[in-house]
Amino acid sequence: MKTTQALILILLTLIAADGSAAADPTLLNVSYDPTRELYQEINAAFARVWRAKTQQGVVINQSHGGSGKQARAVIDGLEADVVTLALAYDIDAIAEKGKGLLGAGWRSRLPNGSTPYTSTIVFVVRRGNPQGVKDWDDLIRPGVVVIVPNPKTSGGARWAYLAAYGHALKTLGSEDKARDFITRLYKNVPVLDSGARGSTTTFAQRRLGSVLVSWENEAELLRKEFARDGLEIVRPKLSILAEPPVAVIDALVDKHGTRSVAQAYLEFLYSEEGQEIVARHHYRPRSAAVLARHAAELPPLTLFTVDELFGGWQKAHARHFADGALFDQIYMGSR
């Protein structure tokens, strides 16, 4: 009897809570794995800004997972108002395969090709950098054990692969030499974890490998988390400009009536306050002024983009990551 009463009470409370919240718009931000902490702070700050502007509250829910998996969830019907994913290829997939969800021109709707912040790929080494890893060329030396996730299942791993390949292409000058370089690099990889966090665990907790190839923000987090182990960050001379894109999902915001707040939410990422939060979470802000203020943690680097070196994500994917493409050939050749 007691339980029934308790249940009814809980139900009533839920209904009441639902009724009062209905006035405020709710957004669902579907994002990728390592942005959890970033968007927690962004959401709180945006809710404040939105209230000041419209006298209206806003509730933002977050969903995190592998970038490709999240894109698939949206295609299959997850009611996302905005997506903030790891690579343009995944949002392209939503535009292409999600029937009428998103217009093909999504990249031109916000500044910088709809990428409000960037990141890059750096190295993490153990205390004192015992193997003297300084740049990409050190990763193909025999005896250097490299930990990097599987580009087939991880967006971050695709950035890492393209960073290494781009370095080889730029310094060695030919596709053949770059292929040879990347093959030798992956020969030094003993384990291909399915995601970036998996690789971080393998490196930091299983103590496997001499160098972890990782997102810059993940590397900073790792250094703080394992301060006792004295992990060090090494920035290669040349790396890739990773540009995680964002988009408002047209069909779904129109259905929910949340277009204006969703648009304002993404624009907030470009604001002074938004960029400051981005920098605090070790992503590289687009704003030159904010970046300059954080130059100590985010030193200037020479970075190339996927567009200039690989002709965009669709081409890069077909040439490197599709079934039977270059990445697969690395392993087929070794047999």
Partner: peptide, 21 residues
């Protein structure tokens, strides 16, 4: 460890394919 040809299980292959749509 998910190494192609050595320690890749079939369900991982399915996830890999899905990841590429």
């Amino acid at each position: 460890g998910n190494m192609p040809l050595r320690t890749e299980i079939v369900p991982l292959l399915i996830v890999t394919r899905l990841e590429q749509f």
